[in-house]
Amino acid sequence: MSLKLLFKDELKGFYKSNVMMFLWIGLPLVVMLFHILTPNTGDIPFSIMTALVVSTLGGTLAAIMLAVSIINEKEEHVYTLFVVRPIKRKHLLLSKFLAVYTCLAIATVLALMLGLALDYFLGSLPPEGLLSDTLFEFALALSMIAVSSAVGVFIGVVSPSVLVGVILVIYVGNQLSALPMLSISMELSISPLLPQVLGFFGLSTPSMFLWVTEIPGSIRFTFFVGMVLVVILLAASIAIFHRKEL
């Protein structure tokens, strides 16, 4: 119950903040500006460029916002009033992460739709490749901002001051959030992996999971790397936060 309540609360707090206003309105504008300044992006579809801009810029901003928010609230003993009530400490962090991630996902969708529309009307993306490319771009952007947000939470929990937190987010956060991009260069085809693993144990792929094998390997790899990083970062943040005297 407390996670749902805190998530709604944090969402209310974040979506009205100046940073979110910039992400929701500013990011699509940045995409437009990018298109005007760099109309020729070579072979790379404009929507992919949009995804990269959105996920790096938006991800960094979100990570800074999360880290600063957690550091400030820790310093001001805001959490004291929460943890004396029957709630789980991890819900405080998870609600922040989910709220920022949700806001960013919406901003990403808005910016990507604009990028795709530009691609479509400019003819830089063939209609037959639209769905798979869109899926990949979306997966990439979502994975990168998830990692950025998790980095923001982690740095917020461990950092002793806002200044240190911001420096860490800029230098460490960006590097980590770029990891899901590995799939672009590696083009790993792991589609047959699931049936092979199951086959090794004499099992067949359950029909409900067949759709997974249809997803291109690069998308799955992007999601996989992103999820692993997010789980590690959030688990570490929760463990440290649990031991902290608030």
Binding site: G13, K16, S17, E73, E76, H77, V78, T80, L81
Partner: peptide, 10 residues
């Protein structure tokens, strides 16, 4: 608590 503090946006 001795130093009571709330989230500022509330």
């Amino acid at each position: 608590p001795q130093h009571v503090s709330f989230q500022r946006w509330r």
